[in-house]
Design a protein around this nucleic acid. Structure first.
Lengths: 251, 251
DNA sequence: CCTTGCGATGAATCCATAT
DNA sequence: GATATGGATTCATCGCAAG
């Protein structure tokens, strides 16, 4: 158990640039939500630099900023994600876990990347989104997925934990900061895979929900975010969470 | 709409032998649960163990028969499943759907096989199993998955349907006939992807739960099962279901 | 303060039309 | 002929205002 106070920080940088600068085995867990590179009807539309146009419909289209790095084809996606996750593995302690969000379409490619990077695939956590569109003459796409890997055998714990394999949580609506912002209750369950007092790394921080959940649970947080706009927002949110949570809380 | 009575039949044969004999475009939907080949950790373990040893713990071990075809490595699994699913595509009407069960470990390989066979991948349906073992220091494996594909663009319907993307149902325990028997309520939701009065093909019939659900929903059923023991059971169950459901019920 | 009702929305998708 | 664009579609859920 670390005797230092928990800390939290968001680097304003590209993941593939910043990750190699991290100290090996300096974090206990990786928890991240990469751009899925999944939407869009045509190659042109996928490659376009507006994630709002791809993912947000109706009148909400004008309110949120775009995010970067959502313009790869599927082959490049696997390759790029494998590079990122390999650097994450290097930065992570043996026995630590890696959790990566994915939609149904990219799930196989994400599992390839996770394993190509050297993580041992451990399972799939299902995130059910109550708010979703029906699909005519077919099955609703009402879930997203979190792929779980570990760096070698799972580390044992003083206090064993038993975590759920299916999480339910609505995407934030009012006051949403990011097109793909995750609900705090879902992130709160996921950060439990990190031992109390440990450090969580998120190379695609976005609006910083992972960091907020980490700090609230007494974990330290290291975020990386390339878009100015979101790096600022994430920093502010994480610092705010630090002020709420008394330093030293490792419950 | 067919004017003939619904019919149901289980062939006692190997899938790859029997499927090529089917008339092209003679079924409306494929719904099946292939042997997952994923229980053992090592090739030796996979090849040696009986299916009872792999999938059944405790006292149920004595009562259920082994089933065949569960000893392929992952590469062969994809290849073999692609062959089977390609034959299914040939037998299926354009616009028809294919639903294939998979566990988390085989999901990527199953999606490869589905697409290699020529089906258009449409999504993942999550099956939540309420009864499951917790996992120490990790996330429960409480879901299995159904991969959904279509033969080209989805066929339109007189009565559009909007189906759920997450199903909950407990595996049968008492009175279970097969090690991997599926709950009837889950199968009942899945058969709805087949137009009323249409025919459902299941090349790995097992104890015939798919057939029972199909008949109850007024669909015709064509099953294929290689193991004597299960082919008999499935035939009996499907015939029994036919007697319950009045012929001509296509509701 | 709790309940009711109305309106907006979703890491979309489909088809028809235009380029 | 291939690709791009526009507009319609669907409903459980959630926010918000009114009662």
């Amino acid at each position: 158990m670390p005797t230092t106070h928990p800390h939290a920080e968001v680097l304003h940088a590209d993941a593939l640039t910043a990750l190699p600068t991290l100290t090996p085995e300096s974090v206990d867990c990786v928890l991240t939500d990469p751009p899925y590179n999944s939407g869009g009807r045509t190659p042109t539309e996928r490659a376009r630099q507006s994630t709002r146009g791809k993912y947000v419909s109706g009148s909400a289209r004008h309110t949120l900023a775009d995010f970067a790095g959502d313009n790869r084809d599927q082959r490049s996606y696997s390759y790029w994600l494998a590079l990122v996750l390999a650097e994450c593995l290097r930065a992570c302690v043996p026995g630590g876990s890696c959790l990566v969000f994915s939609d149904w379409r990219q799930l196989p490619a994400t599992s390839d990347a996770l394993q190509a990077a050297g993580w041992t695939w451990r399972g799939i956590i299902v995130w059910r989104k109550p708010l979703n569109r029906p699909l005519r003459n077919g099955f609703r796409r009402e879930c997203e997925y979190v792929l779980w890997g570990s760096s070698g055998p799972l580390a044992d714990r003083d206090q064993p934990v038993y975590l759920p394999g299916l999480l339910t949580g609505s995407q934030p609506r009012a006051g949403r900061r990011h097109v793909t912002e995750k609900p705090v209750n879902v992130m709160a369950e996921l950060v439990e895979i990190c031992p109390p007092g440990g450090t969580i790394l998120d190379p695609f921080t976005g609006s910083g929900t992972t960091g907020v959940a980490a700090v609230h649970a007494g974990r330290s947080f290291l975020g990386i975010e390339v878009t100015d706009h979101y790096a600022e927002i994430a920093n502010a949110r994480v610092l705010h969470a630090m002020q709420q949570a008394p330093a030293g809380n490792t419950a």
